[in-house]
Nucleic acid binder design. Structure first.
Length: 737
DNA sequence: AGCACGCCGACT
DNA sequence: GTCGGCGTGCTC
């Protein structure tokens, strides 16, 4: 095969040849899952980005290793590196260590993790384009930014002590927490009520890190993670307002999946080169190259979105803790309702806990009203079929008449979760999934929320022709409609009729729609807001004084042992939306309230919520988990199989566990292999799904077992009797079962 | 994972 | 007669 004419074209046969081991984006199986060996005219430093041929395509890869000793003769079996992205500083050893750890821990290939940590735009960029990117684009601006950076570097060198006063005075509580963080290496679990001013603490810590002197001369950096894209803009604004004056207009950048490829590339390069000092982003940001990293903040650390649910199933929160420890950075996990894993890890050693994290408590709500009073409505005592109990409607009416706002939460979008024929029992089942198609009244469709399959609403029962097909159950769309009806004659203080609005994934599909609708709430155009959990998180609503969860019970029927924890977090967070602005509440002379309608008001989730008693809830949950041998007292992994039939999916899993037993894998006696079972959502888009739980009391035993098992799983998958398997995957530390 | 090659149905 | 479906196999 003729070699391409290229700048990196091969040297004459007599010249020495260096072997280069490169990580490329290939899965662990596929025969080329490991490092691939290429040749080059020089030894390339590890971390160098290169383009290499694989088959008939060219891939971006990261040099992982390149032995310094050359071989005299080129190896005809090996292809040369096509080109080297010089000009870009190699990714440092700490980043490579993080990637290596994540790849091993989550059972993926090095290249797969490495390439998810790199901006996609880098893949299809030539060395020239990259050089242009790295060079100052607008000379004036970047000179200025550079000058600011230089000035800062000079100032840092001259005055290494944090000389600048914090922009906002911290409360005694916040100062106390910061002082503890000065005395202790961390990790820290910052347990602070909603509105307790956790963000100010984060900013103080970030500021301190940015002002710290280093011996490398590389600018110090901070990584701040948030669970959702929606929450980045407002935090970005606060961090930019705080740090841009000191560290330059480019000092704060963000990174999340909603950005375009060029935007992501820009942020990544800024972080990699040290121009950016603060990187604010979602879980993907944990893999960003941050050579000067000094502090990591994981806000709302309990949030399940930190666990990636596709491809490499990593936990950005757990990796953040690992990354910080591995490179001597501080890490702060913050939450008003910490995950039970983190809560347990922060049980002090002197009371028998692991004491791995230092727990810091901020109980006071700064500038916010007192905690909302929780009112539990026993729905068994209320008129049947009513979504809104009369006392709740009366309370909402009263708030509206006083000019206050109410938030009504229901985690189910659409009008009704299913249509039903009373004559023949037909239900609007999705033909492709084991789920109902949801009735959306607005566009007269039946939609499956799992596979997207959409149909027009039939005028009569498709089975028996009965024209009276009925919506069963309630979704946000229906709640909005019913509230409009119930509040039709209610007037606001200004004499205008009450206005009801709705925010969920359906109303915010268009870009900018969420911001626009939030503005409507802020400006007071909307009096009662109906929404799914997307509005329960993070947003600051000044005038909302009443929050209601109308049907939270469903979440408790889940077989997942984490269901109570998730519901409790959600309700606590929702409660935190009420009375955010203490001065407003005081002026109104009202008390914020959280209403919960339930069939089981005695349930400990609701009782703990009523007391605002997270510690008690956590303690009881942890005791149950310990008794039942569940996380965080045990470690789990899940092997999942997808196939055309449930039988085929389970057959694969059974064969896999047989292989583990026959292969005499290490630690086989220390892990427990459960029998395969269908997933809770058994069929999605005509694919049957099964799963098998693996449990161990020792994390390392589980890790070693999984590692040894991996080749057996490939082998089983290759057997002819498992040809019909669509895919299989391993999920380490699964976050839902 | 991509991307080839390769062998069977509905269309210009 | 071609376009194109996705089954099998290979990539340092």
């Amino acid at each position: 095969m003729p070699l391409p004419p290229d700048s990196a074209s091969p040297s004459p046969d007599s010249a020495p040849v260096f072997r280069v081991q490169v990580a490329v984006h290939t899965p662990v199986h596929s025969g080329v899952g490991g490092l691939l060996t290429y040749t080059h005219t020089t030894a390339l430093p590890p971390g160098t980005l290169v383009r290499v041929p694989l088959g008939n395509r060219e891939l971006l890869g990261v040099v992982w290793d390149s032995p310094a000793d050359a071989e005299p003769v080129p190896n005809a079996q090996l292809k040369p590196v096509r080109s080297v992205l010089d000009g870009l500083p190699p990714l440092d050893a700490r980043w490579r260590r993080l990637v290596a750890f994540a790849a091993q821990y989550y059972q993926r290939s090095l290249g797969e993790i490495a390439l998810t940590g790199l901006p996609p735009a880098l893949k299809d960029m030539t060395a020239e384009q990259l050089a242009r990117r790295l060079a100052p684009k607008s000379k004036k601006l970047s000179k200025k930014a550079q000058a600011a950076l230089d000035a800062q570097a000079v100032a840092d060198a001259a005055a290494p002590a944090p000389a600048l006063p914090p922009t906002i005075a911290l409360s005694a509580e916040q100062q106390g927490v910061c002082a503890q963080m000065d005395q202790h290496p961390g990790p820290f679990l910052l347990y602070g009520a909603t509105g307790s001013g956790k963000t100010e603490v984060y900013m103080q810590r970030v500021q301190q890190a940015l002002l710290a002197a280093t011996d490398t001369g590389f600018p110090t950096q901070a990584l701040v993670m948030v669970p959702e894209i929606n929450l980045t803009p407002q935090l970005l604004e606060r961090f930019t307002a705080r740090f841009a004056p000191q560290f330059g207009p480019q000092a704060v950048v963000s990174m999340h999946s909603g950005m375009t490829n060029p935007q992501r590339l820009k942020s990544w390069l800024a972080a990699h080169t040290g121009q950016a000092r603060v990187l604010l982003g979602t879980r993907m940001a944990v893999f960003a190259s941050l050579p000067g990293l000094q502090v990591i903040v994981v806000d709302e650390e309990h949030d399940p979105s930190y666990k990636q649910q596709e491809g490499a199933r990593y936990s950005a929160r757990d990796l953040a803790v690992w990354r910080a420890r591995s490179q001597g950075a501080q890490v702060i996990l913050g939450s008003a309702t910490p995950s039970l894993e983190s809560w347990h890890a922060s049980e002090p050693a002197d009371s028998g806990g692991p004491g791995r994290y230092l727990r810091l408590h901020m109980p006071s709500r700064i500038g916010a009203a007192e905690l909302p009073r929780v009112r539990l409505v026993d729905m068994r005592q209320q008129p049947r079929k009513a979504v809104f109990s009369p006392p709740l409607i009366a309370a909402i009416t009263e708030r509206v008449q006083r000019g206050e706002q109410a938030l009504v939460l229901l985690n189910r979008r659409g009008f009704a979760p299913v249509l039903f024929c009373a004559d023949c029992n037909w239900k609007s089942d999705c033909p492709h999934c084991s789920a109902h198609q949801v009735f959306h009244k607005g566009d007269r469709t039946l939609r499956c929320h799992h596979c997207g399959f959409t149909q027009r609403v039939p005028h009569a029962c498709p089975e028996c022709g009965n024209p009276d097909i009925l919506p069963l159950g309630k979704g946000t769309e229906q709640l909005e409609e019913e509230l409009e009806r119930l509040l039709r004659n209610v007037q606001r203080p200004d004499g205008n009729p009450a206005r009801v609005g709705r925010i969920d994934a359906d109303t915010t599909r268009l870009k900018g729609a969420l911001e626009q609708q939030l503005d409507q709430v802020h400006s007071g155009e909307i009096d009662v807001l109906v929404g799914t959990q997307m509005v329960a998180k993070g947003h600051d609503f000044r005038r909302i004084t009443l929050v209601a969860a109308v049907q939270p019970d469903g979440a408790l029927f889940s077989s997942d042992f984490r269901a109570p924890e998730r519901l409790f977090c959600l309700l606590m967070q929702a409660a935190g939306r009420a009375g955010r602005d203490g001065s407003y509440v005081a002026a109104q002379d009202s008390r914020p309230e959280m209403w919960v309608q339930t069939q089981d008001p005695e349930h400990m989730v609701f009782q703990a919520l009523r007391q605002h008693d997270y510690p008690r809830f956590a303690q009881r949950q942890l005791r149950e988990r310990e008794d039942a041998g569940m996380p965080p007292f045990a470690f789990q992994a899940l092997v999942r199989a997808d196939a055309r039939t449930q039988e085929a999916a389970q057959d694969f899993l059974r064969a896999a566990s047989d292989a583990a037993r026959q292969g005499e894998l290490p630690h086989l006696d220390d892990v427990f292999l459960y029998p395969p079972i269908p997933m809770a959502m058994q069929r999605v888009a005509d694919v049957e799904r099964a799963q098998m739980l693996i449990e161990a009391t020792d994390r390392r035993a589980l890790q070693r077992f999984l590692h040894a098992w991996q080749p057996w799983l490939h082998w089983v998958r290759g057997q002819p009797q498992h040809k019909s398997l669509v895919r299989w995957l391993v999920d380490v530390d699964p976050q839902s079962l």
